[in-house]
């Protein structure tokens, strides 16, 4: 009987221990979350971005169809029927502006994630191994950094065709060098720390040290870098579609809309200005999140 009792005891102890550890972790996370929620910058940024995410998904439930044309109501100025006016095909600008968030909000986050993934791997390897590996990788990164983002992406898109997937991959690839630099410098700060030496002394493989020892300690710079890149990715995606390298008409995408409607800028400025403001507000929202995060992290 006694042995069974001992086993049970140690099991319950283990369970209690695990529960306590989980509680402790949750307490620390809760502190960060509370600090973020107390930062007005962060909260406003999140509200703006959430607004556009919501619109990107559900806008058609509230507005008219962004594609519906009203041939008898073209280029009408804002009114009770059409709050943001109508465009040259009589489409509701409000509906198009709200729905236009969708493509940017698909492209930008995915491209950013790709850049974080690739840049993370490159930065970890360069920063961890240093020496000749680092030299070679970072010189290549310098070369990539010297390429002008827009021109390069236009060339690649012209070469491979302009699908959404390719746009994502191209933006992700072009942002990789910058990300890898940030992550490399964070890794260099960590690799000389004694816990990394201790890991080497117990014979851990390099991959383990990079992924399990170092990576968890550089999440904050990675998150901040990610939000910075996200802002730029929104910009780049809009620019590419403005230049005709995104979706084609009749998509309500902001960049595309600004490009096609700009001929009416003087006579019907609402057709261009509302999507332009929408784009600007999304970028501002992302940047506010970045500022909020970095100020909470740096405390």
């Amino acid at each position: 009987m006694a042995p069974a009792g001992v086993v049970d005891d140690s099991r319950t102890q283990e369970m209690q221990a695990d529960v306590a550890a989980a509680l402790e972790q949750r307490r620390q996370r809760r502190y960060l979350v509370r600090a973020l929620l107390r930062s007005p910058t962060f909260v406003i940024g999140v509200l703006i971005v959430l607004f556009w995410v919501f619109m990107g998904i559900f806008s058609t439930a509230f507005t008219q169809s962004p594609l519906a044309q009203h041939p008898f109501a073209i280029l009408q100025s804002p009114s009770a029927a059409h709050w943001f006016g109508t465009d040259d095909l009589g489409r509701d600008v409000l509906a198009r502006t709200m729905a236009g968030a969708r493509t940017v909000l698909i492209i930008a986050p995915l491209a950013t994630l790709l850049a974080l993934l690739w840049g993370g791997i490159i930065g970890l390897i360069a920063g961890f191994y240093r020496g000749i590996t680092d030299d070679i990788i970072m010189r290549l990164v310098d070369v990539l950094l010297a390429l002008p983002v827009i021109i390069t992406s236009i060339l690649i898109l012209s070469l491979f065709g302009k699908s959404l997937a390719i746009v994502i991959v191209v933006i992700g690839a072009l942002f990789t060098p910058v990300v890898s630099r940030t992550i490399r410098s964070a890794v260099i700060g960590e690799r000389e720390r004694e816990y990394v030496m201790a890991a080497r002394l117990r014979g851990e493989r390099s991959a383990f040290v990079m992924a399990r020892e170092i990576l968890p300690n550089i999440t904050q710079p990675i998150i901040v870098e990610g939000t910075v890149r996200l802002g730029y990715a929104v910009f780049t995606a809009a620019t590419l579609s403005f230049l005709g390298f995104g979706l084609g008409p009749p998509s309500p995408d902001w960049g595309l809309t600004i490009a096609t409607e700009r001929v009416d800028l003087q006579s019907a400025p609402w057709t261009v200005l509302f999507p332009a403001f929408a784009l600007a507000s999304l970028v501002v929202g992302v940047n506010l999140i970045t500022d909020g995060l970095s100020s909470v992290f740096s405390k």
Partner: peptide, 15 residues
């Protein structure tokens, strides 16, 4: 052959 390091604040992985 093992080692004990100097700095208590960086000798353990904070994560």
């Amino acid at each position: 052959i093992q080692m004990v390091f100097q700095n208590p604040d960086s000798t353990l992985n904070p994560a």
